[in-house]
Nucleic acid binder design. Structure first.
Lengths: 211, 211
DNA sequence: ATTATATCTGATCGAACGATAAGATCCATC
DNA sequence: GATGGATCTTATCGTTCGATCAGATATAAT
């Protein structure tokens, strides 16, 4: 009756649909991505989306769930086995991993930015389900840095959007960057240099009292 | 025959349509903003949009033209009569004005970010018509700062997206910021503090060689 | 007052949208 | 190898989309 995906073929199809949905939702926004376009990119027919997912909205949530799950697990893997390392080094690693993940998966902030522009049910769900846990982690990181004297008296809301904006925007806007500057922001050297800058931004740019 | 807006009533209607179009295009993306919703917000009927503008695409371009024109004139007004002032102070004023304009007009970067995610005719037009001139100004500013020894050896593509991302993201994502942090980013004190941080980011965060 | 043109509305077109119904096909199990 | 549920397709529904057209209304010019 319902789509339990209990057979291998169903799981593969489901994954193909999720990948296609993530790409098109993040690139064209929720309204701009038609279910027919998603189905075509996934190599299936359009009504099959309604077999595997209850509707467009639930397909969107499933694709976003999948993306955030990958971000969470990759961050945990990156920080595992670092029990003895000091907070400043861990903070640098977290910021660097965030930038690198944003480069490898620009869909993350494309979707966040898309939905965050407008109040509504999708934003409510996104914030409470996925964004707030990340924000809490960031707050904890800021407090650790402040306790070590590495952070100036800057409110966390400023820091959070300064960091995420500085770290992710160039990858969100990669097509413009390429056309405007001739630089491919996904090139490994660019990603590494950008991560360095954002880490420096966190550690150094706020240590002195702003004007 | 064509919409020349030679009568006062036509000009007022045209302005109402442009304002409504800018709000909905920036908030809901090009596809998500229906011409009927724009017409309703402007207080007119839907076919009237096709009387004043050749089609949805041209309405979008007209609204974007209008917005960038306001940004350009406000920046020129801000920097006029500063002939004797040194380059560093001028650069700070430029960055501060950019942040303040982004707070007062979040539609600017909402539209840029929306279109910059995907290659296409709208992005091509946007970059060549409006974004590249702004980027050239930023490049000139970077060079002036570098000549004064106030800038580290950072490629302009990094600096440009670091600055615009750090300065505009919190206002683009204002609904999320409010819900996530409880802070209203449009409050004058928040805008001023954010502008201070971004100015500091430009002047200080890059003066030392990154790791 | 009449005319001409600018401005605006109601009706409606074909296309694309998300969703559903009915049935074909596949495959593990007995 | 027959059965039954899981998977997938074809056909099509009602709605909304951007656009067009014919005509109503308003206003400036004569």
């Amino acid at each position: 009756m319902s789509a339990l995906a209990s057979r291998p073929a169903g799981l593969e199809t489901r994954r193909a649909i999720l990948d296609a949905a993530l790409d098109l939702f993040s690139e064209r926004s929720f309204d701009g991505a038609s279910t027919r376009a998603i189905a075509e990119l996934a190599g299936v027919t359009q009504p099959l989306l309604n077999y595997h997912f209850a509707g467009k909205e639930e397909l969107w949530r499933a694709a976003v769930d999948d993306l955030f799950e990958r971000f969470r697990t990759s961050m945990e893997r990156r920080l595992s086995g670092l029990r003895g390392v000091d907070d400043v080094t861990i903070a640098k690693l977290m910021v660097r991993h965030f930038v690198e993940f944003s480069a490898a998966n620009p869909q993350l902030h494309r979707i966040i930015m898309q939905e965050s522009k407008r109040a509504g049910a999708r934003l409510d769900w996104l914030v409470e389900t996925h964004v707030r846990p990340l924000y809490e982690n960031a707050l904890a990181m800021f407090e650790h840095l402040a306790a070590r004297g590495e952070l100036g008296p800057v409110a966390p809301a400023h820091l959070y959007y300064l960091l995420t904006g500085a770290g992710a925007t160039v990858f969100v806007m990669a097509p413009e960057c390429e056309r405007l500057t001739g630089v491919d922001p996904f090139a490994p050297e660019f990603v590494a240099a950008h991560a360095d800058l954002v880490v420096d931004l966190l550690i150094r740019a706020t240590t002195k009292e702003p004007v």
